[in-house]
Each structure stands twice: as C-alpha cells, then as structure tokens.
Design a protein around this nucleic acid. Sequence first.
DNA 1: CTGAAAGCGCTTACAG
DNA 2: CTGAAAGCGCTTACAG
Lengths: 342, 342
Amino acid sequence: MKRPTQKDVAELAGVSRGTVSMVLNGSTNGRVPISEETRRRVLEAAAKIGYAPNPVAQMLAKGQNHIVGVFVYADVFPYAQSDYYFPYLSGIQQSAIRQNYNVLLFTQNHHQDALPQVYENSMNTLRLADGCIFMGQKTDREELARLHSENYPFVYVGRREIPNHEINYVINDYAAGTAEVAQHLIDLGHRKLGFVANLINFEPEYDKIRGCHTVVDNYPEASVTTFSFGKQQHADLVEQVQQKHITAVLCTDDSSFITTLKLFEQANIRIPEDVSIVCLTTAEYDQSLGLQPTHLYLNRPGIGEKAVEVLIKLIDGELESPQQIMMPTVFVAGETTGPCPT
Amino acid sequence: MKRPTQKDVAELAGVSRGTVSMVLNGSTNGRVPISEETRRRVLEAAAKIGYAPNPVAQMLAKGQNHIVGVFVYADVFPYAQSDYYFPYLSGIQQSAIRQNYNVLLFTQNHHQDALPQVYENSMNTLRLADGCIFMGQKTDREELARLHSENYPFVYVGRREIPNHEINYVINDYAAGTAEVAQHLIDLGHRKLGFVANLINFEPEYDKIRGCHTVVDNYPEASVTTFSFGKQQHADLVEQVQQKHITAVLCTDDSSFITTLKLFEQANIRIPEDVSIVCLTTAEYDQSLGLQPTHLYLNRPGIGEKAVEVLIKLIDGELESPQQIMMPTVFVAGETTGPCPT
DNA sequence: CTGAAAGCGCTTACAG
DNA sequence: CTGAAAGCGCTTACAG
C-alpha cells in the first residue's frame, strides 16, 4: 500500500541504493559509467513497481529545491485585484518555465482579515523556496530588513527603500514614463498641469512627480498642482482646476483616473476639449467612458520575467551588488488628451 | 555563514534536539508539558541565532507537505490564455488560503514547444505536492489513467472520461445551462436553431448539445442543426442558416461566437433582428460588436475553490467514491438575442 | 564498475 | 519533565 522507495528498486534489481540513484539521475559522480546491463535492470525494476523518487528527500539531500516563491503583501492573495497581479504572475511563470523552476504561491501565510507575515512565531516561513518574489502595496519593511540581513534571496516587484538595506527590485520606470507624458502635454500646448494621487507618500508616486517635474521645470511658464485624494476628499478638485485654469490632469492610478473623469463629467467639463486627462498606469477602454484612455502601458509580464531572472542569479550566487532595475513603460496616446483650449 | 539548524539551537539552549522540536511545534507528544523555563530558553536561543526550521526536512519527517499542485495541459502555462485560466487559479488560491495549504505551480514540466508531461523518464514528477489540480484541453488520458492507478490524489477542472478509471472532476453544468438557453430561445419564438462548435468530440461540447436537445426535443416543430468549425471550414454557415431558415445560433466558445458574428455582419444579417446569437461560455462586452452578448456566465473561481476542497478531502482520505461535481452556470440575457422574426 | 556508510535537518516513539 | 536514537528517502564522497 505504501509507495515504493529507492530501496525497493535496489532490492528488486539486485544492486545498491547508490547505484539506483546514479542510474536514475544519469549522474556518474565522476566515475566510470555504469554498465548498460545494470542500467537496464534498474530501469526495468523501477518501471515495474512504478517507482518515482521522493522529491522532498531529494531536496533535503541536495540542498536545492528549484522553487521560486511568490509572496504578496495584500489582505488576500490576488483575487479582487487579480487584474493587477496576474500579469506579473504570468511573467513569473514564463521565466520559471524557461529556467526549469517550479513556482510556489505562499498562500499559507494568509490568514483571515490579517496581513500575511513572512515571520510567524518569529520564524521565516519562506525557506521552502530557494528565493522569493515579493509583490503588494502593504509592505512590511521590517520583515524585509530582517530577511535581507539573513541573506535570504528575494526581489521586490516595485521600488521599496529600506534604511540600511539595499534590496533588489524591478520596477516600471515611472519617472521616464511620466516625463514622456508631461512632454506630450506640453507639446499640445498645456502649461497648467494637475497631478492627482491617492497616496503621496509611496515610492512610485514620488517617481511620477519627479518625472513630471523634470520636463515641466524646463518651461518657466508651466506649473504642476498636486492633489491628494483621501477618503471622500476630492470635492475641491473641480473647483481648483477651474480657478487655476488647469487644462491637463495626470492621475497616478486607475481608481483616481476614473474618479477624476466622473467628477469632470458631473461638472460638465468636456474631455478632452476642456481638460485632458492621462492615466499613469495601464488603463483599459471603459464602456461608460466611451473614449480610449491616454495612458502609460506597463509591461507587467516583462517585469515578472525580469524579477525571476534576477532572483535565480541571486540564488546561484552570480550577483554581488544589489540589482535595482527599471523597465520602460509605453506611452499610449488615446482620446482623453487633446490640444490645450485657447 | 551556514544557516542555523535545530542542533545549534539545542546546544545554545542546553537541551536536546527533540525538545527544541517540541517547543517550536507547540506539540507535547502526549506527555506532560514542557517547563516554562525550558520553553523560554529555547525560544530565546532560536530568536538569538535567527533559527527557522527547514520545511523540507519537516516535510520529509512528517510525510505531509501541505501543498496542492496545479498542472496545466497546454502548450505553455497560462499566459496567452491567461484570461481563461486565471479565474480558476483565483479560486484555487482562495481555497488554499482557507485550508492553510500552499499552491505549487508545476512549471518545471513545461518544455519549449512540447506538451507538459506528468511522467518524465516514466517517473511521476508530481509527488512534491500532496495532490494536484489539473486543467487544460490537451489532456493526456494515459497519464491520468496511470496516476489514478497509482492512487495519486487529483481533481480535474473539466469533465474527462477515462475508460476503466472513475476520476474526480469539477465542471460547469453545461447541460443545464444550455437547456436554459434553449428554453429562452424557444420562449422567444425560435424553432430552427443552429449549434456551432469548434471540436465536437470533446466532453463539454457533448454536454452542451445534450442540454440543448433536452429542451428542443419537447417541441416537435423545433430542430437543431449542428455546425463544426474546422480550419477555414465555416464558409457555408451563412448559406445554411439562410437555406434552413435558422433564426438562432448557439456558439460553444467565444472564438466561434466572434467568428459567427463576423460572418453574419459580412452577410448583412442583423443581430438580433434577423438572427439571435448566444455564447455558451463567459463573454465580455466587445467594443467592435457594440452589443452586450447573451451568454452563459461560468463561475470559474467557484470551480477552482470547489476543486481544492475536494482534493484536500481526497488527500485526507475522507472520500471513498469518486466525486464528479457539477457547478451551476448563470444565464445572462444580453442584446444579441431577441424575438424570432416573423 | 559497485557497496557500505555518512549526511541532509527534521519528528517521534521509547526509555529514563 | 528530558535525552538518546531510529527513521523519513534520498545523494555523494569514500573504499574497494
């Protein structure tokens, strides 16, 4: 009833367990090859009893698991926000296939209504994987710091700065992308820009604002006004836009993009005739909107792939300095931007 | 430089390795509890040297991994068709979280340009997981048969019939759903129905046709004509529809749904005035179409969740008879169906 | 060309 | 309450 082990094969084939191991792994351990006759006997015996090596035992003996982990700092594992996470996961899978790794989703660390934790009872629960890809907004920076000092190999998808720890990450080059957007708007004649974000104190948002300024600051008559959307706290956006004669608004994420569109619609502000709007992340055509959004397309699968490549090099010890990689975004001109009204 | 082991903790705390194990697992192995003082010493020692048990060693010793695998019979792991697979994966993750399992994606079994194989060198590569969820169209039925005779626990997402093997599966109840669709069309006055499929010799398609007939056969004047879309072989659909005065067409998947719509458009057949069309799977609003599709919504996350529930019961040995579970679909009346023209 | 044995890092009866 | 030891199923130097 128990599944067969190496020992069963060895006995049936009349050889030692070491020999079975070597035949099945094709490895000869730096020795003369194993005789064809022996090989055949072992293979036959294995096939006969339906033997398959226990990968857990192999992992323990070899000390390498060939598994990359995926850990998500979010309330639940990608589900409601699956549109956001799955493109990254796609890339992770692609890369894993290419490099002959399996992918382990750390779902065990999620408990109801609580953020997932790497350390449970102060113990690192990630050791099943050789290394791990991190995603998610609700980063626990202390855990990352600790993981880093333990030399556990990991790569964050997204920029995270941890004091005293140079961690590895792969991220969209928001600064360059936003600069491209800003230049586009400037070229269309816009000079008074608005910048809408949900949370300002977050690395990606910094990068976007910074990118915007690198362009705008070249035009003395141009300016950027920043709006922070809190809970219900966007009531004065329309007012301010009108008062300050803002003609173009950059929104950092799709929720603020949609909100902004709705606010303008309610105020009878026409898009793009009166005001141009850009979404600084991937935005799909929305039926209720009826316009192709001008946006920054993020190559999320590409980022996932890159993150795994870096991670595996890390695992293999091929990297000494920390990797902080920027991936280009793609500017997509849509129908929500137009020339500055005169 | 090496990561600390149980032995290191034991020495530092001045206790035996078994004691460390018990303290850390909270298990007392049917004995009097471990003294508070000892507990504290062990915990402190562990924290001090940053010890975390090696999960691989734990798995080997315990013989249980708490991992559910996911294996996809498709050329590549969900990527191009990610829209199709990811909703299932969402459900799998949800269920795994609830039951405290991790999820392992078997990407190692995918090699370029070849279908993935469970058995490599005639050895089952799935043993890392306690059991496995299967998905994908390009099922290798021989592998499933073998897996089943080896008593490896698995659940297929989709119906697969294997001679002499009653396997476990969870599937959309296409028969009931299609019957609902057929009734809807009959109620709208349609009597001559068309049924379009890409491959007819596939379990889900059988179920759909069967469901259609259970309704249509109650109406003596009603009939169903079946069309099989091969490669480029749908040229006569329009012709036949006109000749036979077919007024409603059921399409088994979204690709045949889209193709049918295009063919009708080219022939100046109006939807739904002249012909009603239904998609027998989840169909999104398509901008080029401009109509909300009448379709059968599939609760894919729900199926993923159910599949994991069944799998874990299987692993725990709580199930004796094979489980073949039907999940209800949801009929969504859209704009591509209307009353039969008179 | 092959066997015997140590080792991977845990858990769990079994004695004390 | 704790220690010593066997065992989980492999791999890999080391002898022969």
